[in-house]
């Protein structure tokens, strides 16, 4: 899922300074799981704003709403009628959700309330780690299910750098070297032969942004994407 972190309160407050009536829109999917922008966090941000502005004797009218997924037109469209009354919208979704909302509600400025950080996993409450950089050419089948692109800071495709110390990474000694892990895992699985071949240069043209994917079944409808 997408992991995000709430922006510092002062930054959000400064962005909203010119407005009198705002709508905070939460997202019930990834950012809710990582406790950055779900329904609870919408409430929290609204209270924080009310309190801070109250202390300064300023008035800000705040609406709160959370949709299931801001990155999905189906869930987002009904919101459009609802936003008309507000001066500005604060989206607590990831960057994709913020932009989608911005595109749909074209008459209002939309502000992000989180910093979108990475695609990762939920290890335990409050503890998330990056796991995939969406490289468009997944190597996991070769590398024992451990991503060389993401788990190795250098994204090396052909084995460890010279900096591994006791199986740990030169960049962050707290972390295991991805290539020690990959090797060990393939050894356990009896698949070390996977590492014989030299992997070629990565096709970075595939990651030219912004990417588009069209499901094969819908090629006729949307046209080819290649």
């Amino acid at each position: 899922m997408i992991i995000a972190e709430r922006k510092p309160f002062a930054e959000i407050k400064a962005m909203l300074a010119p407005y009198k009536k705002i709508l905070i829109v939460g997202c019930g999917t990834c950012v809710a799981v990582c406790l950055a922008g779900g329904e609870k966090e919408v409430g929290l941000l609204a209270s924080q704003l009310r309190l801070a502005l109250g202390l300064e004797d300023k008035r800000l009218e705040i609406g709160e709403i959370t949709v299931e997924r801001q990155c999905d037109l189906e869930f987002l469209r009904p919101l459009c009628d609802f936003t008309a009354d507000y001066d500005a919208i604060v989206s607590m979704a990831c960057g994709a959700g913020v932009q989608f909302l911005n595109q749909l509600c074209s008459l209002h400025p939309v502000f992000p309330a989180v910093n979108t950080t990475f695609i990762g996993v939920n290890n335990a409450v409050g503890h998330y780690t990056e796991a995939c950089r969406a490289c468009h050419n997944c190597y996991l089948g070769i590398t024992g299910g451990i991503c060389p692109v993401t788990m190795c800071p250098k994204g090396l495709l052909n084995g460890p750098c010279g900096g591994t110390v006791n199986g740990h990474c030169e960049v962050d000694p707290e972390k295991e070297c991805a290539w020690s892990r990959i090797y060990h895992r393939l050894e356990l699985e009896g698949r070390l032969d996977n590492l014989r071949e030299i992997l070629p240069l990565h096709p970075h043209n595939r990651t030219t942004t912004p990417g588009t994917v069209i499901h094969p079944a819908y090629k006729r409808r949307y046209g080819p994407n290649e």
């Binding site: 084995g159 460890p160 020690s180 050894e187």
Partner: peptide, 15 residues
């Protein structure tokens, strides 16, 4: 470059 004292050594030898 090769690292004679790499720990673990096998991934280094593979490289």
């Amino acid at each position: 470059v090769v690292i004679p004292e790499a720990e673990p050594l096998p991934p280094q030898l593979m490289k």
